[in-house]
Design a protein around this nucleic acid. Sequence first.
RNA 1: GCCGACGUAGCUCAGCCGGUAGAGCAGCUGAUUCGUAAUCAGCAGGUCGUGGGUUCGAGUCCCAUCGUCGGCUCCA
Length: 636
Amino acid sequence: MIKVTLKDGSVREYPAGTTVLEVARSISQGLAREALAGKVNGKTVDLSYPLQEDAAVELLTFNDEEGRAVYRHSTAHVLAQAVKRLFPEAKLAIGPAIQDGFYYDFDVPQPFTPAQLAQIEEEMNRIIKEDLPFKRVELSREEALEHFKKRGELYKVELINDLPEDAVISCYQQGDFDDLCAGPHVPSTGRLKSVKLMNIAGAYWRGSEKNKMLQRIYGTSFPKKAMLDEHLFRIEEAKRRDHRKLGQELDLFSIQEEGPGFPFFHPKGMIIRNELENFWRQEHKKRGYREIRTPIILNRSLWEQSGHWAHYKENMYFTKIDDADFAVKPMNCPGSILVYKTSLHSYRDLPLRLAELGLVHRHELSGVLHGLMRVRCFTQDDAHIFMLPGQIKDEIIGVIDLFDYFYNTFGLSYHVELSTRPEKSMGSDEIWEIATNSLRDALEAKNMSYKVNEGDGAFYGPKIDFHLTDSLGRTWQCGTIQLDFLMPEKFDLTYVGEDGQKHRPVMIHRVVFGSIERFIGILTEHFAGAFPVWLAPVQVRVMPITDRHHAYARELVKKMEALDIRVELDARNEKINYKIREAQTQKIPYMLVIGDREMEQGAVAVRRRGKGDTGAIAVDEFLVKIQEEIKNKTIF
RNA sequence: GCCGACGUAGCUCAGCCGGUAGAGCAGCUGAUUCGUAAUCAGCAGGUCGUGGGUUCGAGUCCCAUCGUCGGCUCCA
């Protein structure tokens, strides 16, 4: 008998050779039905895996991330089988499970067409109906190589050759198909239910543009049709919230052929932008930052000194002035450093926090441009903090507090990742140790949980990244705090210490929004275009019912304008229903309907976006209420 | 940059096998003065992304080019 420890800590005894599935069955029939794979001592295995000794056993269902991955991975194999049945000449590359589904890469002479995709999906459903068992076969490296060479599966051969010496090589077989695969898999193809192929895309073998372009098919699968439908609905919802679509509908910005990747901000977009910047300035001033502005075009020599000319040239734009080489700045730090160097600094002056809303230009590949999210020019809400090494921790804490305050204001939750020293990096071990510990100390002092990305830091220092989660559960990297020991060195920055000697300051680079443009894109999708009142381009629209209410309405508008409320009058000769519909589609937070009753009582009938008619209140009462909301940056 | 799809009025889209461009919304004009998501009628609006080519004839076919969209290691 062997002892099996279950997830809940209970221990059961079974005869040796009992499979994971049998363990599931002994717990409950329901679990046995739902189980997709198992986990034995932390390693995922097939349900048919026989237990030979004492072990910790977990059963994975679709509710577990790993269970879902097994499910999708098995679906990927069915996709490959279907493709091989329909297109025997197709060569198989890789087919992993991903976030919300799976993909499989194929080398085929002709790209797949949407019609073929439908055909493949049909074939997949046939394979599922055939309910073919997934069979695991382990084989030696030689056997595996011979097997795949014989079939001309060159990519598989390459994969096998790259496997480490001690790797157990396995294949999974279902019916007329088999594939190199570590597994595990669901017991049989019949376990898969709702399958959908999403799209086709080119993808390089192993992601390198030096390699051949393969055809990738993306798909997803769920154990219930309702789950698939919900997933498709979420995709629709994301489409509905697409900032490019809303940006056009709400007239916030545009991108034109004449400037690919260079967005135009329209009057309404500028209001959001200016509100964000006002908020930003106000909060930075409070926290001891001083604002600067540095030029967009600077001499080549500066970029050579900073290292950008050597390391970042591919992404930069250049120009000539009076025969001298200049570059358009891709980052703000060198400019900020030049400002620092215009005077001598005492240790008493530090930390010096120089903030800049700096417009940077970077050459991005044409294929990656995407609305406001990926552009070729954007405004970083940058700041550079020059400080004594001993001030690192407190400064980091200050920045973390600032970030926290900002993100909460927008109702965005976030998580934090700490990236440590990469292999290729500059500076002594000692300074890296101090820097990394300072970041860690700051995070721990704030009692924040964080994920560590070993070796993912910048070459000049470790960093903390802030990943925001929007209302659809998608994450966006926005804020980042980077410690930098290299730039002060390169530019020979100094301060005069207590001892009267020159010392080297440390720098922090940090952005909260990241890029204002991108942040506006994120906010647009997060709020689905229904911005909180303080950000809304139009806060109030006054809608008189007939001509005889116009004078009263105009008076109201004037009153609000005097209070800096962004208000519009809809005096068009249209029915009230029409006016409401339009204001509603424009996502204006407050609609004030003015008729005889309101005029008589000195009131306004308030219709609130998302809530409908909330009845009439006195004008002054409304004004107090909306001003409060603007001041408090209320989210609704 | 690479692979694929796409580009027709301000917007959303139709336009068959190549025969000389159409709708809805928006806009303008007029009528209607109306109480919480579209009042009615009329008018105007396009060198079909751009440049070549094939053809008696091109929005439609071919080539080039620009732009947009979906992708381009979450690794058996």
